[in-house]
């Protein structure tokens, strides 16, 4: 059994995103048009088809995290970093995340793939330092 998902993960882990040239060779390997491979790769939330910014900060905004202060944390990141949500400017991209399955450890923040659980407003500055 061969799974394209395994190839996509290998590329993502190696480059930190899915470069076009790699998707082209994957398309060739599987005998599929690039458009089809791209349509698959771009669907998943854990893969990036663009050259990513230096740092990703994601704040889960599902109900359990919101009930535990996720929106205050999101806005604190906005203010401290001077960036707006989903903006592509600068080195840091701040995102709203969907449920991460850690609702018992809410609120959850993900920075460059590392999970931070039960985050409190007073931890924000320390977390931002990880991006500097």
């Amino acid at each position: 059994m061969k799974f394209i998902l395994e190839d996509l993960w290998q590329i993502e882990k190696r480059f930190g995103y899915l470069p076009r040239r790699e998707l082209e060779s994957l398309a060739e390997k599987h005998g599929k048009p690039l458009a089809e491979i791209f349509s698959v790769a771009s669907f998943y939330s854990l893969f990036s088809v663009d050259n990513p910014p230096k740092h990703f900060i994601g704040v889960c905004t599902c109900p359990s995290c919101i009930a535990n202060g996720a929106l205050e944390i999101l806005h604190a990141f906005e203010e401290e970093l001077g960036v707006s949500i989903n903006s592509d400017e600068g080195d840091i991209r701040l995102l709203k995340l969907q449920c991460q399955g850690r609702c018992d450890k809410a609120p959850v923040v993900v920075i460059d793939g590392v999970y931070y659980e039960k985050v409190r407003l007073e931890n924000i500055e320390k977390l931002i330092e990880k991006c500097r």
């Binding site: 394209i4 998902l5 669907f43």
Partner: peptide, 23 residues
């Protein structure tokens, strides 16, 4: 197999498409 992330991937037929390398 590790999924690439997406709520719909838990739907029983969406999983099949995902495993087959389709959207």
């Amino acid at each position: 197999i590790i999924s690439g992330g997406g709520y719909i991937c838990g739907e029983e037929t969406a999983i099949l498409n995902s495993l087959e390398g389709k959207r």
